[in-house]
C-alpha cells in the first residue's frame, strides 16, 4: 500500500487530525466563562433597572456583544477564537465579531459597497436562517 495506489485514502495518515479533547476542553472553559460573565451582568441589570428577567438578559447580551465588537476593533477577538474555537465563535459574541470584522475589513471598499454591502457576509447565514425559521413557525403559532 502506498500513496500512489489510493492517494485520497492513504494521505489521511499524513494529515494531523484536530486535537479533539483539547479543543473541546478549551471551548468548554472559554464558552462557559463568557456565559458566567453574562450571567453576572444579567444579575446586575436584574437588580437595577431591568423590568424583567428577559430584559436583563438582553442587556447582558448587548454588553457582551459590545465587548466583542471592541475586541474585534483592536484585533484581539480572532486570537481568542483561534484558542477557544466554538467557545468564542458559537456565542452571540462570535456573531458580533462576524459582523464587526466584515465591516472593518471592507471599509477600504467604501461605506456602501464595502461596509454596508459586506457586513453580513460572515454572520449573515445564522441571522437569515433564524429569521426564516421564526417567521414561518410564527405564522402557524400557536
Amino acid at each position: 500500500m502506498g500513496l500512489r495506489t489510493d492517494y485520497l485514502r492513504e494521505v489521511k495518515a499524513f494529515q494531523p487530525s484536530p486535537p479533539y479533547a483539547a479543543n473541546a476542553g478549551k471551548a468548554f472553559l472559554v464558552g462557559g466563562a463568557l456565559c458566567a460573565l453574562a450571567q453576572w451582568l444579567a444579575n446586575w441589570y436584574g437588580g437595577t433597572f431591568a423590568t424583567s428577567a428577559l430584559e436583563a438578559h438582553l442587556w447582558a447580551s448587548i454588553v457582551m456583544a459590545g465587548l466583542a465588537i471592541g475586541l474585534t476593533a483592536v484585533g484581539k477577538y480572532d486570537d481568542i477564537s483561534q484558542f477557544a474555537g466554538a467557545g468564542a465563535t458559537m456565542l452571540l459574541t462570535g456573531l458580533a465579531n462576524a459582523l464587526a470584522s466584515a465591516a472593518i475589513e471592507h471599509r477600504s471598499e467604501g461605506w456602501m459597497a464595502g461596509v454596508g454591502g459586506q457586513m453580513l457576509k460572515a454572520g449573515g447565514a445564522a441571522i437569515i436562517y433564524g429569521v426564516i425559521a421564526a417567521y414561518v413557525l410564527g405564522l402557524f403559532w400557536p
Binding site: D78, S81, A84, T89, G94, A98, A100, S101, I104, H106
Partner: peptide, 17 residues
C-alpha cells in the same frame, strides 16, 4: 485572507494543516 478566506479579524479556529 480576505479574498480566499475570511475577513482578517474574523474569529476562525484554523487547523494545524
Amino acid at each position: 485572507e480576505r479574498q480566499f478566506r475570511y475577513p482578517t479579524e474574523l474569529g476562525v479556529q484554523k487547523p494545524k494543516t
